[in-house]
Computed example of a mutant assay.
Amino acid sequence: MSIKTIGRVLKERRTELGLGLSEAESFTKIQKLYIVALETDDYKALPGEFYVKAYLKQYAEKLGLNADKIIEAYENGKGIAVEDKDDIQETYRFVKPSERVEPEEELGPKDWHYYFPIIALSGVAITIVAAVFIAVILNNPSSPNLMSSDYSDSKSSILKPSVSSSKSTSESSTSSSSSSVAPAEKLEVTSISGSTMNITLSNAVDPIKIVFTGDANSNVWVLARNTDMSTAGVTISNQNPSATASLTSGATQSTITLGKRTNLAITINGQAVDLSKYTTTIGPYNIYLTVTPATGTTSNATTATSTATTTNSSAQ
């Protein structure tokens, strides 16, 4: 039996367990500096009385010593009676933390129930990432398509006003044309008496043209007064098969005289005069033409030209 200091007992016990200072520090969670102070009985190196007792108790318990006896010896300022090794042979084996078997490891391999929540959560996470990726791709087309779309929209926006303006102007012109174009011209025989015929051209539009046309056997003298025809008249023959006379501007009447009515055709503004209505074969024949002008009219050609001009101006 021998008396040893607390520090010596602690150091010998650590040595018996095969622990170096670094291993003891890791195992006991006490700084190496304080372990050295405890093993050399240098208690002044510790922060205070409270820490001295706390570290002595913690260190003794970790080393497998009786912590109460260690604290009692410290408080009494005495050493510790220790039996010599020759008297009692004790064998100690220190089990390092890495060699310890935790309770969970003793349970054996885990079944599929343990891993199922992990697998399920992983699947959900992958699905969410894939959905977000697809949404981003679908909502962000490539730049060339965007440029093409922008160009098309820009082009459409530039052209639309012109087309709309053209359409509006065209509709306006068409409406104006519909309301201003007079009824068609109408040529009718109002009376016939012997060699005299009275005819009327209603809804007439200038110029009023009288056309005389003969055939291969024609030899007919004709005259149209109040026209640009010579006052001497014209002979329609094989050498001069046709003649045209235009009514003087503003004139509403003309007297047409024919030497005979056979081998001859007459049209006024494209409408034929029916010479077969004469009941006599004895000439000369007089045709009294009365013209009734159309009021507030505009010719179709003029309206069409106006519409085309307006449309072109809008498009430009």
Rank of each mutant, 00 (worst) to 15 (best):
M1E: 06
I3D: 07
R8L: 14
R8A: 12
V9H: 03
L10D: 01
K11C: 05
K11E: 05
E12F: 02
R13E: 04
E16V: 11
G20W: 05
E23N: 14
E25K: 15
Q31I: 03
K32I: 09
A37D: 11
Y43Q: 09
A45T: 08
P47F: 03
P47K: 04
E49G: 14
F50E: 12
Y55K: 04
K57N: 08
Q58P: 02
G64N: 06
D68G: 08
E72A: 15
Y74I: 04
Y74Q: 11
E75C: 06
N76C: 06
K78W: 04
A81V: 11
V82R: 00
D87P: 03
I88C: 05
E90W: 08
T91R: 09
R93D: 07
K96S: 12
K96N: 10
E102I: 11
E104M: 12
E105Y: 11
E106C: 05
Y114Q: 01
P117L: 01
I118C: 03
I126E: 06
V129Y: 04
V136E: 10
L138C: 06
L138S: 14
S142Q: 11
S152H: 10
S156Q: 10
P161N: 10
P161E: 05
S166A: 15
V181Y: 00
E188Y: 13
E188Q: 11
T190V: 14
S195W: 01
S195L: 01
N198W: 07
I199S: 00
T200C: 05
S202Q: 04
V205N: 09
D206K: 08
P207M: 02
F212Y: 09
S218F: 02
L223I: 10
T227R: 03
V234E: 14
T235Y: 06
S237G: 03
T244W: 00
A245C: 14
S249L: 13
G250N: 09
A251V: 09
T255L: 10
K260L: 15
N263S: 12
T267H: 00
T267G: 03
I268Q: 01
G270H: 05
L275V: 05
K277N: 10
T279Q: 15
T279R: 13
T281A: 13
I282W: 00
P284I: 00
I287H: 02
L289I: 06
T290K: 15
V291M: 07
T292D: 09
A294Y: 02
G296T: 06
T302I: 08
T303I: 12
A304E: 09
T305L: 13
T307H: 11
A315P: 02
A315F: 10
